Simulated scan of single mutants.
Amino acid sequence: MNDAQVNSIQKDLSHIFKETNDFLSLKNKKIFITGASGYIGKWLLFSFAYLNNIKGYNIDVIATSKNMLDCDIIKYLDTKDKFFFENIDVRNPFDIPSDVNYVLHLAGCPDRRLHASEPLGIISTNIDGTRNVLNAATRVESLEKVLVFSSGLVHGQQYIKENRIEYKPGDTLNFSSSYIDSKRVQENVCHIYSRQYQLPVSIVRPYSFIGPLQQLNRPWAINNFVKNALSNKNIKVLGNPNTLKSYIYPTDMINHILTYLISDNLDTPLELGAPYSIRLKEIAEIIRDNVKSPISIEYFDAEAKSVKQDFICDVLNNKNDIQFKDAICRTLDWYRLN
C-alpha cells in the first residue's frame, strides 16, 4: 500500500461521512475490536480515523488481533494518539477495559486453506474466542453493545437445478465444516449470553466483498480474476461459469455496520450482503472489459449441470449504493495505484 492508495480510501470514506451526521452518537465513545487486522477490521480503523480527523469525533479505539502489531496499515493511520494497538489471541482469556462502550468481535479466518490445515484452531477461535470475548464483556461497566461477526455461510448452500432453487445443508464430514459449523455454534453462544446474562449482543453475517484492501492471493474466484487481469494474464474460471455470486463494496459494508452498531436492534442479525447475484462468467467479462490489455477468459467446467449460488437472503437489512460494475472499476483503479 502507498500514500496514493490511502488517499483513494479517504475519498471513498468521504462519500459516507462528509455530508452526514448519522453517526454522531459515536462521538467520544471507546471501541474495542478483535480481529482488527483483517479486511473488515482495516476498513473500520480507516473509518474511525476519518471520523476523528475530519469530523472531530474523538473516538478511542483499542485494535487487537493475534498479530496486530505487525499489521501493514498501522503506519498509514493518522491516529492522533486515539488508537491503541495490542496483540491478543482470543483463544486465551483476556480483559476489556471497563470504560469501553462498543465491542466488535471480528476474530476469525474465512480462508478455506486454513480450514483444512488448522481446523481445530478455527473451531477454537470461533467458539472459545467468542466465549472469552463475551465473558470479558460481562465485566465492562459502560458497555452499550457487542457485535459478533459470524458468516453468511451459516445459512447453508443454494443450488439451481432445472430452474429450481434447492437448499443443501452443510456436510459435517469435511474440513470446511470446521468454520461453518463453529460459526453456527458461535451464534448460539451469543444467544445464550444475551438471554442468561442480559448482554447486549448482536450478530453480523458478512457475505462477500470486493474492493480496496482485498488480499488478491486469497483462494476466491474474484480475487484470482482481478489478480490475473492486473498482471495481463488470462482469467481462468475453474468452477461452473454459471455459479451465482453476490458482492458489496466496502463503503456500503461500513455504512451498514456502523448504522447497525448504533441502532437499538439486538435481536435481528445484520445480513451483510447484496440482494442480487451475478454469474461467474459475467464477473470475469466485466473485469476483462475494464483492463487495457487484451486478455481472454478460459473456462474449465463449462458443462456442469447444477449451479451453486451464494445464499440470497429473503430479507436484507440494507440498501447498497455502489453497484457491482462500479465496484469492479473502483477496485481495479485502486490496485493500479500501487
Rank of each mutant, 00 (worst) to 15 (best):
D3C: 11
V6M: 07
D12C: 04
S14L: 06
D22P: 02
D22A: 13
L26T: 05
K30N: 09
I33V: 14
T34P: 00
L51T: 02
N67H: 12
D72T: 07
K75I: 04
K75W: 00
L77Q: 03
K80F: 04
K82E: 12
K82D: 11
F84Y: 13
F85V: 06
S98V: 06
H105F: 05
C109A: 09
P110S: 10
S117C: 01
S124T: 15
S124V: 05
H155L: 07
Q158E: 13
E166A: 09
Y167W: 09
K168V: 14
D171R: 08
L173M: 12
N174V: 08
F175W: 12
S176D: 10
S176C: 04
V185P: 05
Q186H: 04
Q196N: 15
V201M: 00
R205Q: 08
P206C: 06
S208L: 13
Q214K: 13
R218M: 15
N228G: 07
A229T: 11
L230Y: 07
V237D: 11
P241C: 00
N242P: 05
S246D: 12
T251I: 09
D264A: 08
G273H: 01
A284P: 02
N290K: 03
K292I: 04
P294K: 11
S306M: 13
I312T: 13
D314E: 15
N317Y: 03
K319D: 14
D321K: 15
D321H: 10
A327V: 05
R336A: 12
R336V: 02
